[in-house]
Amino acid sequence: SPPKPCPQQPRPLAMSPPLQAPDYRYVTEECLREWKGQSAAAFRLPDPVPMARFLYELCWAMVRGDLPPQKCRAALDSVVFVEEARQEESASVLADIIAHLGQDITISGEYRSRLVKMTKSLVESSLIVPRLLQERCEEEFLWEVELSKSKGQDLKAKEVRVNTRLLYQQTKFNLVREESEGYAKLVTLLCQVGSDLACQNASSATISIVKSLIGHFDLDPNRVFDIGVGMF
């Protein structure tokens, strides 16, 4: 009898990359315990801390589940930053950190869910304004945190269309409508006045004549401006 085929071994599940969390320097176990306790309002860190590093560790603590997002306000009230930072500056740093974490491929599953909840909580508590996140975060992440009405792919396609229209669309001049006589008179006028444009009266008179040429010969103002800049 023919040999029986060997049973196929189950393929191992793809392992997600390990979480690249930082070492806590300022967000210590004692701090986490105090912030989650009943006396969080009275707790204060003894020494000033650098703003960027502290906020980075604080966000990671919430992503890892060591601190509920609702306790973020208590944590911020308990510290004094080395820099004299306003709330707008701390909000900008938080937006940069969230944008960075949103692109981290090691943050997936429950960590990703905590990141989304943390971002929503920071927006709801007015610790960060949505505009900063909309400027710096990826489209997919904005869809996850409900700061975009369009899905990531739709928003990306819209962004491509807008950039194409702004950067690559060329202005088409209506050469049939315009008269070359008007441009000839314009160049003649600019050549005649020459250095006299330094005088205030001469400049005003020349601008008035240029406006008359634009209106009479139906010239394109952008082309007129380009010619003037090119000559001087």
Rank of each mutant, 00 (worst) to 15 (best):
E181M: 04
F225R: 12
I107E: 00
V63S: 05
L213F: 14
K156A: 14
K120T: 01
I105T: 08
P48Q: 02
P68I: 03
R25A: 06
W35Q: 02
L45H: 07
V176R: 11
A85K: 04
A99R: 02
Q200F: 11
C191A: 07
D226N: 11
T28G: 00
Q87F: 07
V80A: 11
W35N: 02
E179P: 08
K172T: 10
Q200L: 12
L94R: 03
S212H: 11
K158W: 07
E144Y: 01
R223C: 11
E178C: 14
M231G: 05
E57M: 08
Q9C: 10
E57F: 03
P68K: 09
Q87H: 13
M62T: 09
N163I: 11
A21Q: 12
A85P: 01
E29C: 07
E110M: 04
N222M: 03
F225C: 15
G182S: 12
Q170T: 10
S125M: 14
P7A: 06
L132G: 10
F54C: 06
I209H: 15
Q134P: 04
T206D: 13
R73H: 08
T188H: 13
E110N: 10
T106E: 07
C31L: 13
V123L: 15
C72L: 03
V27D: 03
P48Y: 05
E30Y: 00
E138M: 02
E30I: 04
L166D: 11
T119A: 09
I128R: 09
C199E: 15
C6P: 08
E135K: 13
N201P: 00
F232W: 07
G109A: 13
K185L: 13
S108I: 03
D77I: 02
A202Q: 14
V27W: 00
S204H: 09
L45K: 03
A184T: 13
S90H: 05
A42H: 04
S78G: 06
L127F: 09
K120C: 06
L94T: 05
E181L: 04
R223K: 14
L45A: 06
S195L: 00
K172A: 10
S90M: 08
E88A: 09
A85M: 04
L142C: 08
E159K: 15
G230W: 01
A74H: 12
K117M: 01
L115V: 04
R73I: 06
M15H: 09
K71R: 12
V80L: 08
P221E: 10
V229D: 08
G182D: 13
G102S: 07
E144K: 05
Y26F: 13
G182W: 10
L175R: 14
S203Y: 15
A99Q: 02
D218V: 09
S126L: 14
H100P: 03
S203F: 15
L133N: 07
L45N: 00
L115N: 05
S195D: 13
N201R: 14
V229F: 09
P5K: 10
L189A: 12
G182P: 14
S208A: 15
R64F: 02
L94E: 02
A42K: 04
A42F: 00
S39P: 00
V129E: 15
S39H: 09
S204M: 10
A202S: 15
E110R: 13
C199T: 12
E140V: 09
Q38E: 11
